[in-house]
Structure formats: C-alpha cells, structure tokens
C-alpha cells in the first residue's frame, strides 16, 4: 500500500504549505460524487481524523483516510503545466474510466 509524489508535486506542496504557515500535510482522498461516480479530494490538513493513515514522502506527510486508500493505492501525485494552466494530477492505476474533464472517475 503506497502513495507517492513526483518531485515537482513535492516542491509545490512544500511551497504551498510553508506559504500557508500552518498545516500537518496534504490530504488525498476520494468522495462519491461527480459525473462518473467518484471525485478526488486535495486539501491541506490541520488535524488528523480517526482512520487516517499517514505516509511520509519527500519529507512531507500525505494523509489518506482508510476508505479512500482502497481507491488510491499506487497513485502518484504529479504537478503539471498545460499551457498557462497548472495544477495537480492524480496518476491512479485503479481508474477504469474517467469523465471527459477528469475531475471524477470510476474504479
């Protein structure tokens, strides 16, 4: 069971965290919503919740709740630029199908 980050993503996350001035780490998760069933969650974490699992990578804490972990196992978080746009992207091997925009998916 593991979740990883690319160097680019780690750089951005640590920059955002230090800029924010507080926070334990980064939460990855999934929620049942959206046009294709599930949607990703990407949030700063101030407090751990019951059932959270913590992964350390690049000196950063990635926090995932137990339920989401099932869907995210093996995922790599990347930070990409597409033209002027930039942001995070989940490379998730569990995904079977995505909606056109990629904001929601099915496993």
């Amino acid at each position: 069971m593991a979740v990883t980050m690319t160097d680019a993503a780690a750089d951005r996350v640590s920059a955002f965290l230090s800029n924010r001035g507080k926070g334990l780490g980064l939460r990855l998760g999934v929620r049942t919503t959206g046009c294709s069933g599930l949607a990703y969650v990407l949030e700063f974490v101030d407090e751990l919740e019951d059932g959270d699992e913590v992964f350390e990578t690049h000196g950063l804490k990635i926090i995932i709740d137990g339920k989401s972990l099932v869907y995210l196992n093996g995922t790599e978080l990347d930070f990409v630029k597409e033209g002027l746009n930039e942001g995070f992207q989940f490379n998730n091997p569990n995904v079977k199908d995505e909606c056109g925009c990629g904001e929601s998916f099915t496993v």
Partner: peptide, 17 residues
C-alpha cells in the same frame, strides 16, 4: 484531465464546482 488545486480543510468542491 483537469488539474486540481489544494483546498482548505473541508472546503473541497464537488467536480465542476
């Protein structure tokens, strides 16, 4: 693939929101 941004705790929006 849409690119995501990090939200504040509990403030994640639904897809397309």
């Amino acid at each position: 693939m849409a690119l995501l941004q990090i939200a504040e705790p509990g403030q994640s929006t639904a897809p397309h929101q």
